[in-house]
Write a protein that binds this DNA or RNA. Structure first.
Length: 750
RNA sequence: GGGCGUUUAGCUCAGUUGGCUAGAGCAUCGGCCUUACAAGCCGAGGGUCGUAGGUUCAAGUCCUACAACGCCCACCA
């Protein structure tokens, strides 16, 4: 990298002030002061992924600008900082760095140290507490890097108030939250079809998904009908044919009216499935008739739930077709031997491989169910389709039946909408994103994940004398004992030796969704459940800064928790910042490879110049990265610095009595002061509505009101004044004269 | 398919409840070493306010339709 000239090296001075501020403790929150006049910020805990980019600098500076304004208004500020180290990104990095995987059922080994993990290539299994130690080692480094950046940027964070989402306090409060929701009846566990990522092998929530476009193909498949006839069904997932449980068409669809009540026979597997009239089918789409499989998509799940039909689950947790027994419930077939032979061709294959194989078999199959000919009609027809993926996953999600914990959000849509309406959104239109998300919710919030680096559920299950685990009668931890790990701690009334034994207990091996903790950031800061007096002083908070793409997760979940626990809103204001776009107006993201790191910008232009750049971006509006703005910022900062020096020099030569406003007598000076009042007033109003960009603009306009034009148009000095001005513009002179003033323009020589 | 947003100077963007000749920064061009500041100062040129209608004494601003771009959601047999 090019070396930065000495005159542009700002680090030293910034370092000095950073240390000065810290030693003075000027950013401390004073817990002795009452709630009134306190300003509390729900700072976003950044994911400590080790990579920093200008996006971080951008949104965190916005918050700092608002905080500094509030501090100038004499507010007692709570501006904490958290680190989101809990969750999958850290887990993956630790696995690769130390060559370990977590086996939550192992016991903690106090002698094992991550540093002496032998060979990164050799995967050794460690207990969950050991794994968490290894995670802590990695995240400590990352957190230090983030903290250094934040300090360099001059964020006026209250560094005494730090938390990490995996630390003891966060685990404690997350578990307490879970127990409280159990008590209030908002939580349940159920074995039911759930969105599942086959790569990470964990359950997911609706908010974890994203749509991706994928090349698919319609396969027209001929089904026989018992008693004669045939129907043709178009599907993009022929591999699910063995999982078909029914065939449905719209009740008003004339083409299929005669078939309702009869049974269809699937090709290859010869399962006899009912032909059902259902609103679920759209006569306009495909051939108007569709197969219901367990499970192709969320709609299949819904339909199955109300049908009373059995589940034919063929996709396993790893995304491969698992072994099933034809001829036995639920895989009843008219011809079990043929079905088993066909299935033997695809068992163990991934869904994708199985799709191709099934299509091949259908194409070759000349003797389908009722001997009507080739089961696959024509060639598969390619189509672009939108498929749901886990946002971090590489394969489409599947619906797989597993036992999971859920929070009931579907029952409370109207209450959650009401809560959203009580919060002020900046900009206001961002609220509609929240409203739409809530209105469109289709699933309760699945909060359990089959992962390791997270907060465990404070739950055990009794094991009966004949070895059956009692999932329906969980043993909950005592609130006083939190945080606990059910895989190493023993439930009340049991002895450690009874773990896994008949008549004993087992611990719940799952961890919580990382949002189950992140949704409690206000309560974590206020120490809800741990320190009631502090909670009352800090909750609800004043401001939640965040970006718009996580309205459906972070904002939504936080609102859910605050409402469920205390029927409160978590904060009064949500402040939404936009994205950083690259100079071509594309979103900056790691995958695009267009990310700009902040360090060289700070070195070359100074923290203040970078802050100036962020301050120009309006709330909620995406901003293109433009290095000209940094240059402008640097010039402006120098200007202000020099002007201040000039003023200080003047003051040094002036008696204290001459420094009051009343001592200003020159009309032009008085005009400036008058104008300054207006600037302060409009900047203050802007800041009060969190619009720092408008405040900056107000100040920027003042900078160039040097010829008194605006003063004459609206100050109290509109009365006739005579001005002696150096270098007044032509227009300024005209305006002043038009307003009835007179003006004498001085030459440089005078 | 539903929703939200954006569209104003070459570029990046302001423009409040409709109200004097639509503004700023950057860029361009011209002129200046005028107490701290050439990392500065003064000035100039540059706009059919996305398109088409409508309301009004008056529309960048309000209404209707349309277009382009971005985002969110849904569908996806």
């Amino acid at each position: 990298m090019q070396e930065i000239p000495k005159k542009y090296q700002h680090g030293e001075a910034e370092q000095k002030w950073m240390e000065r501020w810290e030693s003075l403790g000027i950013y401390r929150w004073d817990d002795s002061l009452p709630r009134e006049n306190t300003f509390v910020v729900d700072t976003p805990p950044p994911t400590v992924s080790g990579s920093l980019h200008v996006g971080h600098v951008f949104s965190y500076t916005h918050t700092d600008i608002i905080v500094r304004y509030q501090r100038m208004q004499q507010r007692n500020i709570m501006y904490p900082m958290g680190w989101d180290d809990n969750g999958l990104p850290t887990e993956r990095r630790v696995q690769n760095k130390f060559g370990i995987t977590c086996n939550p059922h192992l016991a903690y080994d106090p002698n094992w140290k991550p540093e002496d993990a032998a060979d990164p290539k050799q995967r050794i299994e460690v207990s969950r507490p050991n794994f968490i130690e290894a995670c802590a080692l990695v995240t400590d480094e990352d957190e230090a890097a983030f903290e250094a950046l934040w300090r360099r940027l001059g964020l006026s964070v209250e560094w005494q108030q730090q938390y990490a989402t995996i630390d003891e306090r966060c685990r404690h409060i997350s578990q307490l939250s879970f127990l409280d929701l159990v008590e209030r009846g908002h939580v349940f566990n159920a074995e039911s079809p759930t969105m599942w990522d086959v790569g990470f092998q964990t359950a997911l929530a609706q908010a974890d998904l994203e749509d991706r476009e994928k090349q698919g193909a319609f396969h027209d498949i001929r089904f026989g009908v018992e008693g004669g006839g045939e129907i043709v069904i178009a599907t993009t997932r022929p591999e699910l044919l063995p999982a078909c449980i029914a065939v449905v068409a719209h009740p008003s669809d004339e083409r299929y009216k005669d078939y309702f009540g009869k049974n269809a026979v699937t090709p290859l597997f010869e399962a006899v499935v009912p032909i059902v009239a259902s609103e679920h089918a759209d006569p306009e789409k495909g051939s108007g008739i569709m197969m219901i499989c367990t499970f192709g998509d969320a709609a299949d799940v819904e339909w199955w739930k109300s049908s009373g039909l059995p589940i034919r689950q063929i996709i396993g947790k790893d995304g491969r077709l698992k072994p099933v027994a034809f001829g036995e419930e639920p895989f009843i077939s008219r011809n079990p031997e043929r079905a088993a032979a066909a299935y033997a061709e695809i068992v163990g294959k991934s869904a994708k491989q199985a799709k191709a194989k099934v299509a091949e078999m259908l194409a070759e199959d000349a003797s389908d169910a009722d001997g009507a000919g080739r089961a696959l009609i024509g060639e598969p027809k390619p189509t672009q389709q939108m498929v749901k993926f886990y946002e971090k996953g590489e394969q489409p999600i599947e619906f797989i039946t597993t036992r999971q914990w859920f929070i009931k959000v579907l029952d409370y849509k109207s209450q959650l909408l009401e809560q959203g309406a009580k919060i002020e959104w900046h900009p206001a239109h961002m609220r509609s994103r929240y409203d739409h998300w809530v209105e469109g919710l289709a699933h309760d919030w699945c909060i359990s994940r089959q992962r390791f680096f997270g907060v465990p559920f404070p739950v055990w299950y009794p094991v009966s004398a004949d070895g059956v685990v009692g999932y329906s009668s969980p043993i909950y931890a005592e609130p006083d004992s939190l945080p606990i790990d059910p895989l190493s701690d023993t439930p009340p009334g049991y002895k450690p030796e009874q773990r896994g034994e008949p008549g004993g207990f087992v611990g719940d091996p799952d961890v919580m969704d990382t949002w189950a903790t992140s949704s409690l950031t206000p309560q974590i800061v206020s120490k809800w459940g741990l320190d009631e007096a502090r909670h009352q002083k800090l909750f609800p908070m004043d401001m939640r800064p965040q970006s718009h793409e996580i309205i459906r997760t972070w904002a939504f979940y936080t609102i859910v928790k605050a409402w469920m626990h205390e029927q409160q809103i978590p904060w009064k204001h949500v402040v939404i910042s936009g994205w950083i776009l690259d100079p071509d107006r594309k979103k900056m993201s790691k995958s695009r490879g267009n990310v700009v790191t902040p360090q060289h910008l700070l070195d070359e232009y100074s923290s203040d110049a970078v802050r100036y750049w962020t301050g120009r971006a309006r709330l909620g509006v995406d901003t293109a990265f433009d290095d000209k703005v940094f240059k402008t910022g640097r010039k402006l900062v120098t200007k202000i610095f020099n002007a201040s020096r000039f003023v200080l020099m003047q003051i040094a030569d002036t008696e204290a009595s001459e420094r009051s406003v009343s001592a200003i007598t020159e009309p032009l000076d008085r005009a400036y002061v008058e104008n300054l009042r207006g600037v302060i007033s409009s900047a203050t109003k802007a800041f009060d509505r969190f619009d720092y960009a408008a405040a900056l603009q107000a100040a920027g306009v003042f900078k160039r009101v040097r010829d008194g034009v605006r003063v004459l148009s609206d100050g109290e000095l509109k009365a006739k004044v005579s001005l002696e001005v150096a270098g007044a513009s032509k227009t300024a002179i005209e305006k002043i004269e038009k307003a009835g003033g007179s003006i004498k323009v001085l030459n440089a020589a005078e």
